[in-house]
């Protein structure tokens, strides 16, 4: 993995008697989109608040850009843009004024406001009070605010919460484009696996305050054990053929013409489909059958009481 932008060491936060975050060792490399995954109340937001210095860890340290956050908070935060949970905005001010209020503090040129407004496509709405904005627009304004200081690290907590499908798609495209276009590292939290899967390169899973998985998205796919379902016209013949080429397929209980295969690489799967087709077996569908996040959590945490 490339040089670490965020590195936490045994990061712990105790809220009352509860361990909100328990000995977390995050490691996020330069240029990654890190998906920080976990069910509601798992400790994602608490972790992110500690990464931004909003709350103090009970124990452990946070290093960002190789510097100790507690000691160099201001110089670290100058290089970080963030959007924590629901967007924060001043409803009585226009979008432009909202950005200006932050710009004064960051001390960046005024032209940055127009730049970030165009990135999130709010230029036309710049002169309208934010209280009249839709949630999607407020969320985009939040992203614009986070981008204002040209950060090298972007921390986004549940940026797609409450957005409609087109808003989610838009947000996802925006986040995916950041590392490529601007060389940023992005930490994005979510409680939806499908969401993270579509944009992250690295994944960390947190449950009950503990980091239970941290690796590349590919490794997660392997781990999650997703399977391939193939629907054909002659189930038995196809099954035999696959078996002959060394693949142990399973019958689906409800339909003998549907076969379940273990997760295969794209090339291997293409080879199998070709094999079936060449042997006059009609392939109707090739689908990936994913297991739900809940199932995976149960497996990863090794018990039914993890959720």
């Amino acid at each position: 993995m490339s040089e670490a932008v965020i590195e936490t060491n045994q990061l712990t936060k105790k809220l009352g008697n509860k361990m909100a975050v328990d000995r977390l060792d995050l490691r996020i490399g330069q240029g990654e989109i890190y998906g920080f995954l976990g069910p509601n109340g798992a400790g994602k937001t608490t972790t992110i608040r500690m990464l931004l210095g909003l709350i103090r860890p009970t124990r452990g340290t946070v290093r960002i850009f190789g510097r100790d956050l507690q000691k160099d908070r201001l110089s670290v935060l100058r290089r970080v843009g963030s959007l924590v949970e629901y967007p924060s905005y001043y409803g009585h001010l226009t979008a432009y004024e909202n950005l200006e209020a932050v710009r004064c503090i960051l001390d960046v040129p005024r032209s940055r406001i127009d730049e970030v407004l165009s990135v999130v496509r709010l230029t036309k709405e710049a002169k309208r009070p934010v209280k009249g904005f839709s949630l999607g627009m407020k969320q985009r304004l939040g992203i614009a605010t986070a981008l204002l200081g040209s950060p090298e690290l972007l921390i986004l907590d549940e940026p797609t919460n409450g957005l409609d499908p087109s808003g989610i798609l838009e947000m996802r495209e925006l986040i995916k484009s950041m590392p490529k276009q601007l060389g940023m590292t992005v930490l994005v939290s979510s409680h939806l696996l499908s969401e993270v899967e579509q944009m992250a390169t690295q994944v960390g899973i947190i449950a009950q305050g503990k980091l239970i998985f941290q690796d590349s998205i590919e490794a997660l796919r392997q781990h999650s054990g997703s399977r391939i379902r193939i629907s054909v016209d002659q189930g038995e013949a196809a099954w035999k053929m696959l078996l002959a080429s060394g693949i142990q397929a399973e019958w689906e209980l409800t339909d003998a013409n549907r076969l379940l295969l273990p997760h295969e690489s794209d090339e291997q799967l293409a080879r199998l489909v070709k094999l079936l087709v060449h042997n006059d077996i009609s392939v109707y569908r090739v689908e990936e059958e994913k297991r739900s996040l809940e199932d995976m959590f149960l497996e990863l945490t090794g018990g039914g009481d993890s959720l």
Binding site: G53, L74, S82, Y90
Partner: peptide, 18 residues
């Protein structure tokens, strides 16, 4: 109250400002 209304404290205090 300007900060409390939309909980803008987290945004303001996550800026490089003491």
């Amino acid at each position: 109250g300007i900060e409390h209304q939309t909980n803008a404290w987290k945004q303001t205090l996550a800026l490089p400002v003491s």
